[in-house]
Design a binder for these strands. Structure first.
Lengths: 137, 137
DNA sequence: TGACATGGTTTGGGTTACCAACCAACATGA
DNA sequence: TCATGTTGGTTGGTAACCCAAACCATGTCA
């Protein structure tokens, strides 16, 4: 299915695998992959629209609609920045934070069976190796 | 951004990272992530519609449209199965195969800088560890 | 043969995504 | 200070993606 580099192949397979889990668990709570991601990012900090768009690699107009729907559902809220009144900051509501918590717990539960097939040392190894891949993004 | 399990975190980060590359490279050739995946699957075998849908976790109606567009572009083709005349098999055209080749080569090129930060032994280790995660799907 | 199951397509509606055009608020320089 | 330009977000238009429901054609089985 993918070319003959075993590492690249494993990487891509794993990507699809994790994506499938994220998508499915998200869908069970009416969250798209992107919405789920936004919720994850905003779990521990607020962010301005443009910042989010850049980080997610999305057009700002795409983000507008995305935040619109999440805001209508009461998961996120917008607030004008006092410093620069053009800027709008987004942050999670209590409901949003709670949903993020349960969804990410479910994701962990879904992926645990796989991860538990590794002993602690292997888990550390794998974490470290993937960390190297992620350096300098 | 994601919970406090370092392995789970690395896994999710890596997923988004690879997805971004796949999406971007695909987009440069007017291929969505899913189309790119279909093209990848059909590189070395033909498959029936229902088989593809199940494998990708998509509704059959979704796949119909997907294949429609790829067929119109001349990348894929449909063929009635002689055995069971309800069944439709899909396979890549020469153009599709060629496009798949160049796209996957580009993807490899994009991810190489990261992967090359690992020495051969580490690459093998990483491949093996991810292989364990992927066992039993 | 009649009832049911299977494989795909079509239709309708919501979401995601891009682009272009737009408005409001800052920033800069003459 | 005011004209020009830049930056941050939103709006409108279009296409792709996705699901669910309804549908048609073909197989299967009692």
């Amino acid at each position: 299915m993918t070319p003959d580099d075993p590492l690249l192949d494993a990487l891509v397979q794993n990507t699809f695998r994790v994506t499938a889990v994220l998508t499915r668990v998200g869908a069970e709570h009416d969250l798209s992959l992107t919405q789920l991601r936004v919720l994850g990012i905003l779990r521990d900090r607020r962010a301005r629209m443009s910042e989010l768009a850049a980080f997610l690699g999305l057009d700002k107009s795409t983000l507008s609609g995305l935040i619109d729907r999440a805001e209508k559902r009461g998961l996120l809220a917008r607030e004008k920045s006092p410093g620069d009144r053009r800027v709008i900051e987004v942050f999670t509501t209590t409901a949003g934070l709670e949903l993020a918590g349960t969804v990410y717990a479910e994701i962990r539960r879904e992926l645990s069976p796989s991860m538990d097939r590794l002993d602690p040392q292997q888990r550390d190894q794998l974490t470290a190796l993937m960390g190297v891949l992620l350096e300098h993004f």
